[in-house]
Design a protein around this nucleic acid. Structure first.
Lengths: 378, 378
DNA sequence: AACACTTCGGCAACCGGTTCCCGTGCGGAG
DNA sequence: CTCCGCACGGGAACCGGTTGCCGAAGTGTT
């Protein structure tokens, strides 16, 4: 049995024929014993099982796959698993996939769309049951045509593209999309902030061509307009979705003397960075400035003050994505699900008072936020 | 070409023989054109390539794998991708794997060791190049024998087990382990806290049989002893590594009137939960109580006060794990790497003053932490 | 005793690739 | 003009499984 015992026992890598030989039967019989349904006599069964056990044999899943048996795997590609909301989605995808008996392949692109293409090609080669693209992206015409092409090429090998947290493509493209309502959530959140009497709310956004950021910004604008307000363009700052971006943007806003009594961040991460910048400037929330986030990541509760934000059912989103795509027959119409969100009120946004002051003494920053809750004419 | 065009174009799923037929050559030629090295005339090459393009053909990676070509995949199984430190490791693993041209399979066990076994069996079937178990675990004799068996069974199919952030098994077990220094980090951190004059520091631990928690607790104890102190057993509370656990434990500690002037949490997540519990009780850090964490998750900076903690190179850990295992030849000795950690001092632990008070008014809790920085005789 | 029917196991083809081995047709060297 | 070698391409075996089909027993019926 030992082919080359240089160090301890060697690699065995036994095949089905090895098992067959040891049990004194043919390979087909072994396959049938393992497969289950075919009638096999009790004596052969036990002798085969004994050989399997002795050799510690496991059928090669790739060989089974190629023979058309076995469960195909699922793939999901995302920006960076490190982001809390991505992690949540990934968890949902993975949990549901394994619950349904599928393996999950994961790829991070780190925002590199070229990587995205490479990955999809690999997944196509793997004959993955589905490829799930999670998270928003820069929405350019080039992106749309590229993604549509991806959808087609996946469909051509019997796989399927799923867009999770990303807007749909042109109708007729073979794609499943599961979204959540960015605009609606932002609208509700901003309405809540405005209802507290704030009139100048700073928007800390992501990249301005990013679908998620755009949706949230639309909600911000719409909420203002619904109250007959027109948000000051100077109050929109763009960066990315990291805490560092929020930190930087907030410092910048403070140092250039922007006037505002509340801040609405595009994500909780951005809010977290903004909050520390506020603290560093000697300002408190919500005493001096109210602050709201978006995503309701687990950590939102542990910021001080606990962050008012909008809850997005990220994990459910991932779960739903795989359930939908796996429970699909080829001729089903293309699905498009839109999940709702809701704002969760915590302690970081307070009513504006007549005396909501600017920074009493903001060290290192010239001028704090607006010292009066009453801005110039809207 | 269209087999059944019920809705738009049908599934093509073209094989290498389809390409060969279309190009008017044999399958072997197509394989050689795609493979690269074999001499093929320019005219055949272009005609083959044209057929490939027209059919949008991609070779089936599984078939290649079974034929002994193509890159094997890598698998990593972890508790819950949602935990920030896990996510960091996962990111490191995934990044390094794809950099080296490998795909990564991911599985979460949610702490269920039975799942762990199932997954490993699946990975064995997949003939994964390596299976990386990340994160600490409950260290029981049963665990050790089970894991050793896993290591052997993986080795028998030419795969290999990697333990990442988990202690080694019995010598001779075919396993690669990459650890970081829990005890040393906790020692250094606790020494820092003690050097600030604290003498009663509350330890908020994880499960007492969990390897990571144990290491950190050992460091906590050792740091005390190095100063001639013996930590009060009543000051060790055990839970798990979640923020909720930290929250609950801290509430419990406050409500039962435990005396302490500093808190050392087993993880930053626990610290975060503990901090909000402190806040909820009307206590401030580090004014009333100093607080330290462990892991240096990205969020640690955004707590208020910014958390003093010990930095663990999680991402590097993951990266190193795959680099080590992939750059291995079968007869190499079993590796065991131990990465260093270092404490990062922020604002959450302060020197104890003569007047470091208990809770001025802790609502809902009967009695705050010790009102005197001076405990009974150590 | 002959017959049909069921139970059970082996042969061989197939899944989609790769690669060894060999045969052809071409060119250049002697 | 012959011979040799090389460039090129095809047939077939193989990787490790599954499964349709068929034949050999064993059993029950008339």
């Amino acid at each position: 049995m030992t082919r080359k015992s240089s160090t301890g026992d060697s690699v065995t890598r036994s095949t089905i024929r090895d098992v067959a030989a040891r049990a004194g039967v043919s390979a087909s019989t072994v396959s049938r014993v393992l497969g289950g349904d075919y009638p096999v006599s009790a004596t052969t069964r036990t002798s085969v099982m004994r050989a399997v056990r002795e050799l510690d044999y496991v059928a090669d899943a790739r060989a089974k796959a190629i023979a058309g048996v076995g469960t195909p795997t699922l793939a999901f590609v995302l920006d960076d698993i490190t982001g809390p909301s991505f992690a949540l989605m990934a968890h949902g995808v993975e949990r549901e996939a394994t619950r349904l008996g599928h393996l999950s392949l994961v790829c991070s692109t780190d925002g590199d769309t070229a990587h995205e293409l490479e990955f999809v090609e690999m997944m196509r080669a793997q004959r993955a049951a589905a490829v799930i693209l999670v998270g928003g992206t820069a929405d350019t015409p080039e992106y749309r045509t590229r993604t549509a092409r991806i959808a087609d090429s996946l469909a051509s090998v019997g796989s399927r593209l799923v867009l999770c947290g990303r807007p749909p493509l042109a109708p007729g493209t073979p794609v499943t999309v599961i979204e959540y309502d960015n605009e609606g959530g932002a609208y509700a959140l901003c309405a809540h902030v405005l209802a507290q009497g704030h009139q100048r709310v700073l928007f800390l956004g992501g990249r301005h061509d990013h679908t998620t950021a755009q949706g949230r910004e639309r909600g911000y604008t719409a909420a203002h307009r619904a109250r007959g307000l027109e948000p000051d363009p100077a109050l929109r700052l763009h960066g990315d979705f990291t805490r560092d971006s929020g930190h930087r943007l907030m410092r910048q806003a403070l140092s250039q003397g922007l006037e505002f009594t509340a801040v609405m961040a595009a994500t909780d991460m951005v809010a977290a960075g903004a909050l520390t910048a506020l603290h560093e400037a000697g300002l408190s929330a919500p005493g001096d400035v109210s602050l709201a986030g978006y995503d309701d990541i687990p950590f939102a509760r542990d910021l001080h003050p606990a962050l008012t934000t909008v809850h997005v059912p990220y994990e459910e989103l991932g779960r739903l994505a795989v359930r939908t795509v796996l429970g699909r027959t080829p001729d089903d119409p293309d699905e498009h699900l839109l999940l709702g969100t809701h704002v969760v009120v915590r302690n970081s946004v307070a009513a504006v008072t007549a005396s909501t002051p600017g920074s009493p003494s903001a060290p290192g920053s010239s001028g704090g936020p607006g010292t009066s809750g009453r801005p110039r004419k809207p």
